[in-house]
């Protein structure tokens, strides 16, 4: 065990002095995506990364998940460094399009079980259980494109949950949905997570989604990403839709927006001059 885990509440994920650059330093096309970012994700918390599009939220999530190796700094998961995907420690939920369309819903689960060494006798039960938890049990034999976008996303969510890891990384999982479905799935997610007690890192650019789901919201700056502010949402899970009607909800949402407004503008100017030259100026 590492000596780091001595704080009052243990950190499930520790991000230490992370810097990531795309392309070689000094090259014209080089982009500094993340600049010396440190962050602890406490065990069992729901943490949202919120920031303007293109700010490096997804890059940060991919680094935490071991899909991208950072230029500098390190990520510790339960005290051990992440330098490759470790599907037994953390599971990813991507946008809906990553269900394999050539496999049925249940085959999409078993393929993951197979390579994670889950005993064949458990495949069926674990698939059914995970699908049932999102209300999709009767669609096990459907192909993904026979389902609606919202149903596919439920299945995708279930695939992440079925992995049985303590940590779930979610990259804008509801981005492809309309606002109503998004809110409904968000409620379900809140209920589901209150039961499982998983640690979750969730990337979004929806303010309402961030406030509704998170224990803490990490507001990120425009590229190169660093932490601008962290807002705590002190409201127990599962959260009910009534929470959205409370004045506190709007207040938190407005605080997020106020903090991000300048960053969103900065990001938009940067997109106008695509290579992010502002960082060098």
């Amino acid at each position: 065990m590492s000596a780091e885990v001595t704080a009052a509440r243990p950190a499930a994920i520790s991000v230490r002095h992370l810097t990531h650059r795309f392309g070689a330093e000094g090259a014209a096309s080089s982009v500094l995506a993340i600049d010396n970012l440190s962050l602890d994700v406490v065990q069992g918390e729901f943490l949202c990364l919120l920031g303007p599009s293109g700010c490096g939220k997804s890059t940060l999530l991919n680094i935490i998940g071991g899909l991208v190796i950072p230029t500098e700094g390190e990520v510790l998961v339960h005290g051990r460094p992440m330098n490759r995907p470790m599907p037994d420690r953390l599971a990813f939920v991507f946008q809906e399009s990553t269900l394999f369309p050539w496999y049925t819903v249940s085959e999409n689960f078993t393929i993951a079980f197979k390579y994670r060494g889950v005993a064949r006798s458990e495949w069926r039960d674990r698939t059914t259980e995970a699908l049932a938890s999102v209300g999709m049990a009767e669609f096990a034999r459907h192909y993904p494109n026979q389902l609606s976008v919202g149903m596919r996303q439920r299945v995708n969510l279930a695939r992440g949950i079925a992995a049985g890891t303590d940590i779930l990384l979610m990259d804008e999982p509801f981005a492809a949905l309309d606002e109503q479905s998004r809110m409904v799935l968000g409620e379900d997610l809140s209920v589901l997570l209150a039961r499982t007690g998983k640690t979750i890192v969730f990337v979004t650019h929806s303010l309402a989604e961030a406030v509704f789901l998170s224990d803490r919201i990490v507001l990120m700056s425009a590229r190169p990403a660093h932490i601008k502010q962290i807002i705590t949402v002190d409201q127990p899970h599962p959260r009910l839709p009534e929470f959205m009607l409370e004045p506190r909800f709007s207040e938190l949402r407005n605080r997020c927006y106020a903090a991000l407004r300048d960053e969103i503008r900065a990001a938009m100017t940067m997109q106008a001059s695509p290579l992010g030259t502002s960082e060098g100026a």
């Binding site: 899909l67 991507f94 990553t98 496999y103 993951a112």
Partner: peptide, 21 residues
């Protein structure tokens, strides 16, 4: 599609399994 390849890596599917599945 590179998203499928990323998903395969995240799910822990081996290199040979990724080719096959």
């Amino acid at each position: 599609d590179r998203r499928y390849l990323a998903a395969a890596r995240a799910l822990g599917i081996s290199a040979f399994g990724t080719v096959r599945h």
